[in-house]
Amino acid sequence: MNENTFHGNVGKNPEINYGKNNGIAVVNFSIAINSRRFDRAKGQWVTRPTVWKDVVCFGEFAENVYDSIAKGMAVTVTGEEVDDSYTKESYEPGGEDIVIRRHKIEARDIAVSLRAQRAKVTKVERSRGEQPSDQAQRSTAPQQVG
């Protein structure tokens, strides 16, 4: 496993969709990673260009993320970088197919930074004997954050 941790700000409100075949929640959003370094030669701090990372998460975890984070929030995402590339077929006879290269972070955990914001945590209650996968397959209508 190639697990990494990224700290950044949510770039836009998360979007939620449910799988057509299995009903499992899928949430997508992006984070902006900003950093700077001290340039000794210039004697000043240099801001590096913003790096954007797309994030995806699944199931009950995805629903919790959807209900909990919003654009602008500082978060820490831990997960695995996965290849989400695909080939776009050419519509012209004899034309070449185009490979679209995409990488995402498949999140294993997401934490809200409390450095400059406050959070109120609510534990998700499950019925006795209910497994997380049982709850993830129910179709609920989560409310938009923010």
Rank of each mutant, 00 (worst) to 15 (best):
N2A: 09
E3D: 14
E3V: 15
F6S: 02
H7E: 15
H7T: 15
N9P: 08
G11E: 12
K12S: 13
K12N: 10
N13A: 02
E15N: 06
E15D: 11
N17S: 08
N17D: 05
G19M: 09
G19D: 12
G19K: 09
K20G: 01
N21H: 06
N21K: 12
N22P: 05
G23Y: 07
A25C: 11
A25W: 07
V26R: 04
V26E: 02
V27N: 00
V27R: 00
N28K: 12
N28W: 03
I33F: 02
I33C: 06
N34S: 13
N34Y: 07
R36I: 03
R37S: 01
R37K: 01
F38L: 04
D39S: 04
D39K: 02
D39T: 05
R40K: 04
K42D: 05
G43D: 09
G43C: 10
W45T: 09
W45F: 10
V46L: 04
T47A: 05
R48H: 03
P49H: 01
T50W: 07
V51H: 06
W52P: 10
W52Q: 12
D54S: 09
D54V: 03
V55F: 01
V55K: 00
C57M: 07
C57T: 15
E60D: 12
A62Y: 12
A62P: 12
A62G: 10
N64M: 11
N64P: 02
V65F: 09
D67G: 04
I69H: 06
A74N: 14
V75W: 09
V77Y: 03
V77P: 07
V77I: 12
V77K: 03
T78Q: 07
T78A: 03
E80C: 07
E80G: 04
V82K: 14
D83L: 04
K88H: 00
K88L: 05
E89K: 15
Y91T: 15
E92W: 09
E92A: 15
